[in-house]
């Protein structure tokens, strides 16, 4: 019988497992700080997520531990980190789905703030500015008394589906290409382009989108490793979106 089983199986009242967290600690602001793994032990609670576990550790064991969170419900995308080496949202990961030994590390690629906290916002802003991820509408006189042009419900659903991206950065951290080539636009960027390509209010043509992603740091740099697709916490159809964009952009180039 393993220790895990011994811990969970006891007579009468169920005893919870004792979890051991191995957390990467590093403060880039402190010249004396060196990256190291620090271990914390915590008794598992019913329905415990990694976010709850981290909050417990910070509250009762180590107030210096840095990690990000806002919504606690998988909507803001702040708490993405490497969970046992794979990117995921801490607030959406239940400890019961993991072994008792859990390793946590910050997402690679993004600027490290400290411990598990990374500046995904800075990277995402850079990506948004580069790909101009906003509706490029025709310049026309604003007429507030005129009704907006209706959008087909099916199309609106399709756009909404891609708009579910929370920019958590998991797809970038899961991408082998992004690890090697820091200028690679990543699945999040290509998904954005695919989203605005669908939008009828956006006047940009495929030629315009080619200017944004038609090179080796854009869609042609993607090696179809599909770590992004498999890891996306929002389960976005990234494989099909990237393939769709690749076909469109290849057509422009030929």
């Amino acid at each position: 019988m393993s220790d895990d089983q011994k811990n969970t199986a006891s007579g009468g009242k169920t005893r919870q497992r004792m979890l051991t967290f191995h957390i990467l600690r590093y403060n880039p602001q402190d010249p004396d700080s060196k990256p190291r793994m620090q271990s914390y032990q915590l008794e598992e609670a019913e329905g415990m997520t990694l976010f709850l576990a981290l909050s417990e550790i910070r509250e009762h064991q180590d107030p210096t531990l840095q990690y990000d969170f806002v919504c606690r419900a998988g909507i803001c995308g702040s708490c993405s980190m490497l969970i046992n080496g794979r990117p995921g949202l801490a607030c959406r990961t239940l400890t019961k789905e993991l072994d008792a030994d859990i390793s946590l590390a910050p997402l690679p690629v993004f600027e490290l703030i400290g411990d598990l906290s990374v500046n995904t916002g800075k990277w995402m802003r850079g990506m948004s500015e580069r790909l101009e991820t906003w509706v490029h509408a025709k310049e026309e006189e604003v007429n507030l008394s005129k009704a907006e042009t209706r959008m087909d419900a099916e199309l609106a659903d399709k756009i909404y589906e891609l708009d579910r991206c929370v920019e958590c950065g998991s797809c970038v951290a899961a991408c082998g290409t992004a690890q090697m080539r820091r200028d690679f636009v990543g699945a999040v960027g290509m998904n954005k382009v695919a989203r605005f390509k669908l939008d009828p209010r956006d006047v940009r043509t495929d030629d315009d989108f080619y200017e944004l992603v038609g090179d080796d740091s854009g869609v042609f740099g993607c090696m179809s490793l599909l770590g992004c697709h498999d890891i996306c916490p929002k389960e976005l159809p990234l494989q099909t979106q990237i393939a769709f964009l690749r076909r469109k952009m290849a057509t422009i180039g030929c």
Partner: peptide, 21 residues
Amino acid sequence: RQFSVYRAHAKSMRHGDTTMW
């Protein structure tokens, strides 16, 4: 740098398509 970072990534990701590359 690119080689070692990819190798470490593939090892920790434990993801078939990434390793196959």
